[in-house]
Amino acid sequence: MNTLQRLATACMLCITTHATAQAANVTVVISGLGGSEEYSEKFNQYATTIADATRKIALTPTDVMLLRGDASKKEILIALFDAIATRTDIDKFSAFFIGHGSFDGRAYKFNIPGPDITGEELAELLNKIQSKQQLVVASTSASGALLDIIDTGNQSTGQRILITATKNGREKTAVLFPEFMVEALEGATADTDKNESISAAEIFEYANRAVESHYETEKLLAPEHARLKGEAAEGFEITRYGNLLSSQDQIPQELISTRETLANQLSILRSRKEDIDEDEYFDTLQDLMLKLADIQRQIDDSSK
């Protein structure tokens, strides 16, 4: 059995998993209190863009919920999360918090109309959700404080990824991170693996670099340092573009499955790179990539 065959065997489970994965993909985007017209406008615009982007991969448009203005009040948030918590069909759940956060040395608070919601309260709401995977993006000042509050370990609710715009609660100035995160969702630039799908890892990487580069260019000390915590951010899809998006209904599922299988075989091969002779590694990679190129061509043909 050559390396490619071994990879194919190792990936049987991946095919099965994917073949049954037709569950819901639910997203909640919350735009907090702006405090000024400028910020309110920006936060609403970011939140809208995120909601629009995530809607592209939702089974139904109603699986994406955008809360802004008075709709982001604490009691409404609690009611919404309680309602979502009753669902058992959720595969992936995402929550985006856009706005200002504060940290007084003890408690993180997300600024919303009426009483603010604390980090602990947010964690409680998120823990209620039953999904295989969760993504929490806290794109606010001081959001790093959540790194100690929102658990990314083994959840009863599934695997969780947490992205914060700052590294701790002490980074309190208004953050640039959401601006670049939104930019990442709008085009192909953030899609470094060029699969026409933008993952949580890719938006984080793009926005993080853009923030760093901004402060470097301006010759300023960076007041924000984003963090990503949790496993499998690479595989957590947030939005799509290109053929994959425009023709997703026309592409035979079998091709999509085969493409996923090959991608998974590649992941396994890459993880074994250090253990394989270099030439053998690239020979195997070549075989795999030629197969993938062929499938890709069939996908492209089917969408014409």
Binding site: T192, D193, L262, R270, M289, A293
Partner: peptide, 27 residues
């Protein structure tokens, strides 16, 4: 070929790289 494979290793769905690989391997 080695460089195009390194491109594809990072971005397996990179169509332009796939095309070049096919061209280079004559496949």
């Amino acid at each position: 070929k080695r460089n195009v494979l390194q491109a594809l290793e990072l971005a397996p769905f990179f169509r332009e790289a796939q095309d070049l690989l096919v061209e280079l391997t004559g496949d």
